[in-house]
């Protein structure tokens, strides 16, 4: 464990806390893409298949349970909670995310470390996580005005993988045979998707103005 990875995990946790706060405090999920949240459930279930077979540390197991539990809770809330599901902007959340699932799975069948069930699903979860934010970013562009909590949620979500890139650079230089090219390349693509969002987020923060994404 290094400071970059710990900062990344904490930033990821903060993004989930901000989203849960928004939904529970405002009883609203307006501006949130249900498709992105569903993709994250698939990402965590596919990545943490070893949850009960490989024990790495208490921290690792607890965080996996938190990520799986919170992503399921958010999807449940947006689909079943009477007050919240009414605020879901279904007509704005139109990204065909099934293609992202299919494409990531096909890519995992082609590009993986070992052709085993667990490695294929791990690579699948890495590729899917890289594109999972797309429905949310498209929805933000469509909805134009972004409320503060939603903007902060996306910001922390983008920042977490940027910390992980620093973690991979650090491990590359400190651990002799550290090789994680699948996660590195995918993490770079993932963080690149946030580039324009980070730009507009910074502009809005500098001008102390509301976050406006160009349609």
């Amino acid at each position: 464990m290094n400071i970059f990875r710990f900062a990344g995990d904490m930033t990821h946790l903060i993004s989930i806390v901000v989203l849960l706060l928004k939904i529970y405090a405002t009883k609203s999920c307006s501006g949130i893409s249900l498709k992105t949240q569903e993709l994250y459930v698939i990402v965590f279930l596919a990545r943490y298949l070893d949850l009960f077979t490989d024990f790495i540390s208490v921290y690792n197991t607890v965080m996996k349970l938190v990520f799986i539990g919170s992503s399921l809770a958010i999807v449940w809330c947006m689909r079943m909670h009477r007050a919240v599901k009414r605020t879901y902007d279904k007509e704005l959340d139109t990204f065909r995310h099934y293609f992202l699932v299919l494409g990531s799975f096909v890519l995992a069948l082609l590009l993986h470390e070992k052709f085993t069930f667990q490695e294929i699903f791990w690579a699948f979860s890495i590729y899917l996580e890289a594109v999972a934010i797309l429905p949310q970013l498209v929805m933000l562009q469509r909805s134009g005005n972004v409320d503060n909590l939603t903007g902060q949620y996306v910001f922390f979500l983008g920042a977490y993988r940027a910390f992980y890139i620093l973690n991979w650079i650090y491990r590359f230089f400190t651990e002799p045979h550290f090789s994680r090219w699948i996660a590195c390349l995918s993490g770079l693509v993932q963080t690149a998707f946030y580039a324009d969002f980070f730009y507009y987020y910074f502009i809005s923060w500098k001008n102390n103005a509301k976050l406006q994404l160009p349609a």
């Binding site: 995990d9 540390s57 973690n167 090789s179």
Partner: peptide, 10 residues
């Protein structure tokens, strides 16, 4: 093995 140690990340 290599792949074992990289799977310690979330």
């Amino acid at each position: 093995s290599i792949s074992a140690d990289v799977k310690d990340e979330l």
